[in-house]
Design a protein around this nucleic acid. Structure first.
Lengths: 224, 224
DNA sequence: ATCTGTGAATCCGTTCACAGCA
DNA sequence: TGCTGTGAACGGATTCACAGAT
């Protein structure tokens, strides 16, 4: 398939074709009227815009189960990420290879960051260690942090943090699950008060919309 | 602190106080004019609405590094989730305890689901195994699936899927990182063409806004 | 005839601003 | 006086609809 129409792509992505065309138009005019988009060219342009054509060295700090899972995760390499180093505070881990990469000790964190020109760090430590590790990463020059620890990190301006809370995704599922259950029996919302005025406009569950995944149909209020 | 104002909560959450009040109002009138919201009561009401007061048994299928990390994750229990079973296809794993729970073999999947009344399943298998596992979970009665495998699952109507792609969060960071770098030197966007018309309205990076985490400032187009 | 690119219209979430209650 | 609850105003994002290109 050398070419795709906005219609086809939109269906695959679960969005309106006009939106897709408008979004693409912000990147430039990469389509051909009457034909569609050249797949290979489009992939290249989007990859470039997203930064996938660059090489991003990352370090993973905290090599427990999760850190090891991340180190082994195949999806990184294919997206332009290179695991430059694994770092752990446990001296017993030092030198032990995980996913083919020897674990290094936290003592050398600053040197590792600088030697590899790392600007993105992944924190997979226990909650207590996260903020100190974060501070050291930032001091050493890291400006983007992916945080898996269940803590909200504070960082100076100019540093990006994204927090991944594995249980939030489950919560979202449970929330919908609860609604599905509530559908069968009439209301039965709670104890005292009457039925809710409107609560969550409804739709999310039934309106399938190939959504899968973070972003979308999530209430905005909810502290990070 | 027995009571909070919408102003305080809004500041903590990084949103506008009017939005917070309006959102809360969808759940009912749980505040007191001139005073604020009773913290304990509010926590209870929100917990109930989100389904945190219920007990949600979940199964985790695929006990590799990631599955083990999830099984050990402390955040689940505190949010009302209970890991009812761990399931893996490797016979050698069977019986071995992970996070204090013995791993069971895939052969017993259907029975496990039914015996425990599980409606939420977590898939942490390799990509190839995900769809078959998903099909079996759904056939056995699971109606919500959290998918960590790098595959888009197809499920019948009425089943919710959320896909967590660990590398997407990294991509988002890299995207911002790229923009930060581009800021210093003038344009230098790419090779051939001129500057982009508008691309991503700008703001996301500088406008801190205690954002941390999924949802928010993510381009909507991007197939799950 | 087909499918892109985009101004115009529309929709919807956010914010304003204030009436109402404690 | 202080702060909630909410109708009305606003503004950005989505969708419509069609001119323009192949």
């Amino acid at each position: 398939m050398p070419t795709v129409s906005s219609e086809e792509l939109a269906a695959a992505a679960g969005v309106n074709s006009a939106k897709l065309r408008k979004d693409f138009s912000y990147l430039g005019s990469y389509g051909t009227r009457g034909v569609g988009y050249d797949v290979e060219y489009l992939v290249y342009q989007i990859s470039r815009e997203l930064g996938l054509t660059q090489d991003w060295p990352v370090v993973i700090v905290g090599i427990g189960n999760l850190g090891a899972a991340l180190a082994n995760y195949g999806g990184f390499a294919s997206r332009g990420f290179r695991v430059a180093a694994l770092i752990d505070a446990d001296p017993a881990m030092a030198g032990k290879p995980v996913a083919g990469i020897p674990v290094q000790h936290t003592d050398d964190l600053e040197k590792i960051i600088k030697d590899n020109g790392v600007s993105i760090g992944v924190i997979a430590t226990p909650a207590g260690a996260a903020q100190p590790v974060c501070d050291r990463l930032v001091a050493a020059g890291v400006t983007s942090i992916l945080n898996f620890a269940p803590t909200v990190l504070s960082v100076p301006d100019g540093v990006d943090v994204r927090k991944v809370d594995l249980s939030i995704e489950l919560q979202i599922l449970a929330f919908h699950e609860q609604r599905k259950a509530g559908e069968e029996t009439a209301v039965e919302t709670a104890a005292g008060d009457g039925a809710l005025p409107a609560a969550v406009p409804r739709g999310a569950v039934a309106d399938d919309s190939a959504d899968q995944g973070p972003d979308g149909d999530v209430p905005a209020v909810m502290p990070a």
